[in-house]
Amino acid sequence: MTAPSDDQLMLMYRAGDPRAFEQLFDRYSGMVYNYARFALSDPDAAEDVLQESFLSVADAAEGYEPRGFFKAWLMRIARNMCLNRLKSATARRQRVAALDLTAGDPPSRDQGPSEALETRERMDRLRGLIAALPENQRDALLLYAVEQMSYNEIAETMDAPVNTVKTLIHRARAALARSFE
């Protein structure tokens, strides 16, 4: 039996089945947290965004229109919450100062210590460069490369045309590559 689609789960939740909402949480909580963690560079703030995003989804369930874009809708809510936080001066300072995103890295299983360190250093460098990208480029790249969303989904998430999203992503890749020449 195939798993119910996101839209089906939302409709089931609306009809009074809270387990459907739990399935949606299980399906996407990792993605929302990971995105918020990258975007905010702050684990506590990322946890808040995760919680608030799903509370908002529950509150807005009645008005949800099942058009096959639940993931994009959810990520748009999460992104708006991240942007709201980044608007505050405190959050902005934290973002610049706290680029230490390495604490949550899972330990590498098949690398020796020096290789693992090298990989970690490369990842740290890449994360630092990503964090320094312009906001739109950074978000488009994270959704594309880390969250593996399609161009269409990212366009829906960012409320931007698909071609704009492609341009943002390729510009971001080019900007990162300049630092690796």
């Binding site: 739990e22 947290y33 990971n34 919680q51 529950a58 490369a145 690796f180």
Partner: peptide, 27 residues
């Protein structure tokens, strides 16, 4: 090199206890 790095970039996992707490509140 950048694309390979992005492809390898590990997701940052949520601590399971925290995840369960948040899940409990949300549900």
């Amino acid at each position: 090199t950048v694309d390979a790095g992005l492809a390898e970039m590990p997701r940052i996992p949520l601590a399971s206890r925290t995840g369960e707490e948040i899940k409990g509140k949300v549900l």
